[in-house]
Simulated scan of single mutants.
Amino acid sequence: MDQKDSPELIQQSRSDQTPFAEQICYSPISMTAVTSAGLGVFCILGFIFPTLAWLAIPGVVLGCVALKSIRHYELSGRKLARRGIQLSLVCGTLAPLWHLAWYEIRFHSEALPGYQRVSFGEIVNDRKNFESRMESLLGQDICFKGFAIYAGQGFHKQQFDLYFTQPRGGFGFQPGHREVVSVQLPRGKSWEWNHQPIAVSGKLVRNPDAKSDPEAPQFLLEQSAVFPALTADHFQGPFSARGGC
């Protein structure tokens, strides 16, 4: 038998004549796996934007669906699906914990340790019991949140009035004396006025100026410390003991 007619040479000849595209074993990629990986990447941004951490749920679900489809239909993209599941699980778990911890750090930075947090806005809005509720706090170390009323005479203040919400009238706005509490800093200290919300820690006493001036605030926070109000919570953080700072 001629060497040219040997089965090996015939098979090799047929292989050489097969188009190159047919020799490549190609498996289509699972788009579900791609989507899962993309959601996992977006979950990383959950450390900055808390709502993006919720993408971990569809990221894990789609990753599991992709793995099942890959096995059943012999698709490619197994690594993408696994990475999507891993990123979604890790970031979806750690991002909320990070935000809770960061919230606690900001919450505790608003007030002096041991000062009772009280919602100033809640007391002011309870007009019927305003005075009695304020009197019940006399002599106590408390923390109020609100906005400083600008009364002119420069921006460095040793004493100012605290309003429970954002002043509506801007400069020159003067709320009623029952809607504010006077804040007095220790001697020799001052606070630079700004329009941002603040948290004030001090001892609540009756304002001595109210005896001679009926329009003056009735109550005063003396020996006060002023901090930026970094949270919207007037009372407690997620893990803090009720009533404390």
Rank of each mutant, 00 (worst) to 15 (best):
K4C: 08
Q223C: 03
L100V: 10
Y26Q: 09
I149Y: 07
S136I: 04
Y115V: 01
S15G: 01
W191Y: 12
L185N: 00
E8T: 07
F20G: 03
Q86C: 12
N207C: 00
E8W: 04
F239D: 02
G121P: 01
I123Y: 00
L87T: 01
G169C: 04
L89Y: 11
G243Q: 12
W191M: 08
F227L: 10
R106Q: 14
A151R: 14
L55Y: 04
F130K: 11
Y103Q: 11
I142V: 13
H156F: 14
S212E: 05
D5K: 13
L204Y: 01
G170Y: 09
A56C: 12
K79T: 13
I57V: 14
T93K: 10
L230H: 07
F42K: 13
S6L: 08
S15R: 12
G40E: 02
H99Y: 05
R83C: 14
Q86N: 06
Y73I: 08
R168M: 08
V180G: 03
S13Q: 11
P167A: 05
G170L: 05
T231Y: 08
L89S: 08
I44Q: 12
L75H: 10
N129Q: 15
L138M: 05
V205C: 00
L89G: 03
G170N: 11
F160S: 02
P217D: 00
M31C: 07
R106M: 13
R78K: 15
D209N: 02
L67G: 11
G46P: 03
D2F: 12
D2S: 13
G59P: 02
R178E: 09
K203Q: 06
F239G: 06
Y163E: 04
I48F: 14
P197H: 01
Q153H: 15
F120I: 01
P228F: 05
K128I: 13
L94Y: 02
S201K: 07
E74G: 12
L230C: 01
P228K: 08
E222L: 10
P96H: 08
I24A: 04
E22Q: 11
I70D: 06
S76R: 15
P58W: 09
G46A: 14
G38Y: 05
P96I: 06
L221W: 02
G169S: 07
I44G: 14
G84F: 11
I44P: 06
C43I: 10
S240G: 15
L52I: 15
